[in-house]
Every structure is written in C-alpha cells, then in structure tokens.
C-alpha cells in the first residue's frame, strides 16, 4: 500500500501566510474604522455631554441636532457648497482638459500650473485666499484703486457671500485634479472612433460633444463622486478661510461636529452629526463602489 506523506507543518503555515499577512492591516481597519463607527453610533444615542456616557436615551440627540439652527445652516451650506463646488470643478476641469488637448505647446508646463494646488493643504489655500479677500488690503483695494469703486471682494466677512468664498477656494484647489482625470480619459478614447467620425464629416466640435464626452461618462461619474465626498469632508478650508463665520454663516457639517464635540461639550450631538455625515457619504459611495467592483469582475 502506498501512503500519503503527511502535510509538512511548514507547508501548512505557508498556506496560511496570505491570510496572516493581511490580518494585521485588516484587523486595524476593522477596529479603527468599523469598530469606531459602531462606537460613534452608540454614543450618538446616549446622553454624553463633556465625556462619553453610556446611558442610552434613544434618538434624542438626533432630534436635538435637527432642531439646532446651526445644523440647518450647516446642511444648507453643504448643499450650496457641494453642488457649486462639484459642478464648477467638473465644468472648469473639463473645459481645461479639452483646451489642453488641442496640441498645446508647453502643455506639461501649463498642466503643472493647473495641478499644483492639489499638493497644498486646504489650510494654506484658506490662508492665502483669506489674505486675497482681505477687505482693506486685498484684491478689493487693488481693483478699487484701479478705478472700479464699487468692486467688492471681501466675501469672507459677508454673511451672504462667505459660502461662495469657500466655493471659490475649493474650486481653485480641485479643478486641476478634475482636469487631470478628464485629460487622461480624453487620451484613452478609442482613436478609431474619432477617425471614423471625422471621415463621416463631423466637425471637431461635434466630435467632442457627440462622441468623446459621452464616452467619458464613467469618468464624469468618478470625478463627481470623488469631489462630492471631498465636499462632505471639507473642514480645514472653512477653518482657515472663514472660521465658519461670520457667526456661523459659513459653517459646514464637519465643522459643526468639531465644534460640538471639542468646544461645546455636546458629544452625543457631535456623534449624531458625524453619523449623518457618514450616512451621506455612504449613500453616495456604496452604490458607486459596488458598481465599480462588479464591473471590474467581468474584465
């Protein structure tokens, strides 16, 4: 009779190595992301104030949250800011990408200029634009000195305009990134289709509008998803540019959460606002990631 040699112990370890190697990272993510989400979710249902308190009180913190004017302002701001930021960044990014695609000399140089804001912290961006928008010494003064007496650029200190100052700075920072996305997508469009279309007599304009841009739908989708998740997470820019003010006119949910948690001893309300933010991000990201992962399996 033949006997099977026993599986060597070392081979058994070797077989489990991939799992063993993934384990620490995965465990860290499980604990620090999912575990923490659960913790925050729990705290958002308690009567925690200055310190975590584990006594459950149901959805009262959420009710309180939605009664707070500061929160409604933050949510409203998020809608205005998020919509304008995503919309304008995509338009500007797309426009710049198409323009740069016209066989521009020094394309690399120009691209570098458009993209460098991505390398900078939102804190720097906020500080720089705050200085430019300084009502007494900034761009407003320059333009007025040039003769346009009624020019106003002191948006950061204006109740109604502060949120647009945020949009302006955020677009400045992110539209180069959108451009890079679109440019690489433009370059990967099937060239045969373009040849066929131009042989059919389509003008370059029509080719862009009817063929190239529609074929880039997935990239538009990615750009919008990534930008909107950036919008929801926006925190530092507000801190540096407007400080959420004047008053709390330009506050965003992320700043609200920070304010409640670290300054106002309203931990439960802060946690509740964080959970609402998470839900918003998840509502955007999960369907997107799901379709992305599924789509890739077929390739």
């Amino acid at each position: 009779m033949l006997t099977r040699p026993p599986v060597k112990f070392i081979d058994r370890i070797a077989r489990a190595l991939p799992q063993i190697v993934v384990a620490p990272g995965f465990a860290a993510i499980l604990y620090f992301v999912y575990g923490f989400i659960i913790w925050t979710g729990y705290i958002s249902l308690t009567k925690s104030k200055m310190l975590p308190n584990y006594t459950l009180i149901g959805t009262r913190p959420y009710e309180r949250l939605f009664q707070m004017d500061r929160w409604s302002v933050a949510i409203e701001n998020l809608f205005i800011f998020g919509f304008l930021f995503v919309f304008v960044s995509v338009i500007v990014g797309c426009l710049l990408a198409v323009l740069l695609d016209q066989k521009i000399r020094a394309e690399g140089f120009i691209r570098t200029i458009y993209l460098y804001p991505m390398a900078i912290s939102f804190i720097i961006t906020g500080t720089a634009w705050k200085w430019i928008m300084n009502p007494s010494l900034g761009l407003e003064k320059v333009i007025r000195d040039w003769g346009w007496e009624s020019f106003r650029f002191g948006w950061t200190v204006d109740n109604n305009l502060a949120i647009y100052a945020l949009v302006m700075a955020a677009v400045w920072q992110a539209s180069g990134f959108a451009m890079a996305l679109f440019l690489s997508a433009l370059r990967s469009v099937d060239q045969d289709i373009i040849k066929a279309a131009s042989l059919d007599g389509a003008s370059p304009w029509r080719i862009y509008l009817r063929i190239i841009l529609p074929s880039m739908r997935p990239v538009f989708m990615s750009a919008m998803v990534i930008l909107s998740h950036l919008a929801i997470k926006s925190f530092d820019l507000v801190v540096a540019l407007t400080g959420g003010g004047p008053g709390y006119a330009s506050t965003l949910p992320a700043n609200f959460m920070y304010e409640m948690t670290f300054r106002r001893n309203e931990i439960a309300v802060g946690a509740a606002s964080a959970m609402v933010m998470l839900a918003t991000v998840a509502a955007i990201m999960v369907p997107y990631l799901y379709s992305e992962l599924r789509g890739k399996k077929h390739v």
Partner: peptide
Amino acid sequence: IMIGDRVVNDVH
C-alpha cells in the same frame, strides 16, 4: 495524483 510511486496531493 501520483508522480512515480508517490502520492503528491499534499506535496508543495
């Protein structure tokens, strides 16, 4: 599966 007279199922 055998190679020669050795069952190799569990052999690396």
